[in-house]
């Protein structure tokens, strides 16, 4: 028996079963969606790996990305971040805390009139640089901001 052929057939069977279970409603659509979560990027342990996984390794620095965050945050459990991109045609923003155990925090895609702006709160394990990656017109840009943290939020 050809082992390669076995593997191929097994793989085919599994994929077939998945699509059947979606069409028959055994799996709800969100279960199929959750599979799109970029596991390798969000579980990357270093900044370099996380950046590579979202395709931001060759980004150029830009002053048109504004990061509004406190210089000193007392509580690392909730550090308020406000990010705006003034780069024309920005379609998505990815936010990183460089020294967190998992640096990638969020990846946001904008469409149908949404402005490239996002506001949320992040946990920070220690004082770190915040890095924002913007994608616009097939190019990537980044900006950073230093935030010092008094008490760890991890």
């Amino acid at each position: 028996m050809n082992p390669l052929r076995r593997t191929f057939l097994n793989g085919f069977g599994a994929a077939g079963a998945l699509s059947i279970s979606i069409t028959t409603g055994l799996l709800k659509p969100w279960e199929a969606l959750a599979a799109e979560w970029n596991k390798s990027a969000f579980e990357a342990l270093t900044m370099t790996d996380a950046l590579k996984s979202v395709g931001g390794a060759g980004a150029t620095e830009s002053k048109d990305i504004q990061i509004k965050a406190p210089d000193h945050a007392e509580n690392g459990a909730a550090v308020q971040l406000e990010v705006t991109s003034k780069i024309a045609g920005t379609t998505s923003l990815a936010i990183f805390v460089e020294k967190n155990p998992r640096p990638l925090i969020a990846d946001c895609e904008f469409s149908n009139g949404a402005e490239p702006y996002i506001f949320f709160r992040t946990k920070m394990g220690e004082s770190s640089r915040i890095r924002v990656l913007a994608r616009a017109g097939g190019k990537t840009y980044f900006a950073t901001k230093e935030v010092s943290v008094t008490s760890s939020g991890c």
Binding site: I105, D107, N112, I118, T122
Partner: peptide
Amino acid sequence: FNGKTVLDTRWGPSVSKNPILGFRVKGA
């Protein structure tokens, strides 16, 4: 917004507890 997707975001575990999310939509 009226059935059209305006924001699609993926989060890692580092977003704070009881998350707050802010965004803006033009032409609303």
